Amino acid sequence: MNLDKVIFGFFIVLALTLNFGFCLGDIDNPSHHHVYELFATIVVNLVATILKFGDRSQMGAALLATSFVADLQLFAAAIMWGYSAHISMTFGQEGVMAGIVSLASGALLANVISVTILVIEVVMLRR
C-alpha cells in the first residue's frame, strides 16, 4: 500500500464530504450552514489542490482543473459571506445565504467530478 496515495485519496474524499455537509440543509436558512464548516471546506480543498500538483498525467490535469473550480467557487462563497456579514450588513436578508450555498454547491459538483475521476483512475490501474 502506498501511503502517498492513501493521503491523496483521503483529502479528496474529505473535501467532498465537508462540502456536502456545508450544503446540506435549507438553502436559505443561515442556521443550517456554519461559517467554520465553510472554512474547513476551503482549507481541505486547498490541501487537496496542493497534493494534485505532483501528478503529470491527463487524469492529473483533470483532477487539478476540478480542484481549481472548487477552490474558486468556495472563495467566492467566503467572499460573499464576509461581504454580506461585515460590509453591507445584509447577511440575514433573503437570498444571501441561498447565493452562498449555491456557490458552495457548484464546488460540491466539482468535488464529485474529482472523486469520480479518482475512482476511474483506480479502476483502470493494472497490476
Rank of each mutant, 00 (worst) to 15 (best):
Y36F: 08
V122N: 09
F20V: 09
I113R: 04
G60I: 02
L46E: 08
I27G: 00
V123N: 08
L16W: 05
I117C: 08
S31P: 01
G60S: 06
M80E: 14
L14V: 02
M80N: 12
A76C: 10
H34L: 07
L46Q: 11
G95A: 07
A62N: 11
K5F: 07
I113P: 03
A70D: 10
I50S: 03
G54M: 05
D28P: 08
S84V: 01
A107I: 07
V96H: 01
D71S: 15
L72E: 12
F8K: 06
H86I: 04
L125T: 15
I12G: 03
L18Q: 13
A40L: 13
L108F: 14
A65E: 09
D55G: 02
M80Y: 13
G25F: 04
H32P: 02
M124H: 14
A40C: 12
I87A: 10
F11D: 02
G95L: 06
S84K: 05
A48D: 05
L74K: 02
I42W: 03
A76H: 06
L72M: 13
K52N: 12
H34V: 02
M59Y: 10
A98G: 13
V112G: 03
M124S: 14
I87H: 04
N2V: 00
I113S: 09
N19E: 11
V122M: 13
L64D: 07
A61D: 12
A61N: 14
A110Y: 06
F53I: 12
S105Y: 12
T41C: 12
F68T: 06
A40Y: 05
G21V: 00
M1Y: 04
V112K: 02
M89W: 10
Q93A: 11
G54C: 06
F53E: 08
F75P: 00
F8N: 06
T66G: 15
I12V: 09
V13P: 00
Y36L: 04
V119N: 09
R127P: 09
G82P: 10
E37Q: 10
A15V: 06
G9P: 02
V35G: 06
T41S: 15
W81P: 01
V44D: 01
N2G: 09
D26H: 13
L46Y: 11
A110N: 07
R56Q: 12
F22H: 01
D28F: 04
G21D: 13
L24S: 14
P30R: 05
T66V: 00
E37S: 04
R56H: 08
E37F: 01
T17M: 13
M89F: 14
L24D: 14
R127E: 11
D26A: 14
T41N: 09
T116G: 15
L18I: 01
